[in-house]
Design a protein around this nucleic acid. Sequence first.
DNA 1: ACCGCACCCTGAGCGC
DNA 2: TGCGCTCAGGGTGCGG
Length: 291
Amino acid sequence: MPELPEVEVTRRHIAPVLVGRTVREVRTTGASYFFVTPPPRLARALRGATVEALERTGKYLVADIGRGRRLLLHLGMTGQLFSGDATSLRLLSATARASLSPEEQVGFEPDRHTHLQLAFEDAGPDVLFRDVRKFGKVQLLARGERSERLERLGTDALEIQGDDLFRATRRRKVAIKTLLLDQSVVAGSGNIYTDEALFLACVRPGRAAARVTRAECERLADALHRIMARSIETGGSSISDYVAPDGRDGRYQDERKVYARAGEPCLRCDGTIRRKVIGARSSHYCPGCQR
DNA sequence: ACCGCACCCTGAGCGC
DNA sequence: TGCGCTCAGGGTGCGG
């Protein structure tokens, strides 16, 4: 489940493989929910284009493909953007994984979940975008075309200040967890890191947003920065499908304190981590430390 | 304006 | 062995 840190790690790995290269050939799967821009039009625009830059905004990757055009990429829940020479068992189904050792899997054969494949004019590796559940998105923006998706986004999670959070929470009855997941408030937040930030800031996820104090908002902003910066350093969390573009797994999942630890002991007090559904998302917290 | 919820999609894991 | 069920939770959009 890629959140800001996974998207940023992806950007840092894939930018050197993408920027400065000219697309020779584009392969796509058929029209679907995944393609905001219909595949034929996307392929026409990308062929011959040179990638000038790759930036991140919230969970979106935005590629400058020249002549004012931009390519928007979102990894959704199961999106994997990687280089054709990557090696990772995580790129395979569990059944295929069970029958192969890491040494046996070299490179990657595009499967039916590989929706976009770019080959380049130089002899270097292809760039592939695979997404099993197709919650990801690919969208071409023409010169000067505005993007509602990008305009909707709030302050980047790495930049957000306690005061921004405090103002956003006033008179809001929703759970603080739900508000933190709102991309128009905190761009780049996701289920794992909001749970971790709420734990670090000692705020219970189900509490009404309006009841969170200014001091707690300060702690939450600080916690988001620290947790996400640390996750980027360690290569992100590889809990289910996430894999870095070089095929390596992240290691942040080893540092998480509450996410997917229901029933296990709290690392700060003698309590037990609990799981509760808030806003249709599972939340993990320590009832002892988080008030 | 705000809130809760259904929906998009596929695969893993479970009970029977 | 396989069927049917639930769960995963990113984002959008709709009805109340």
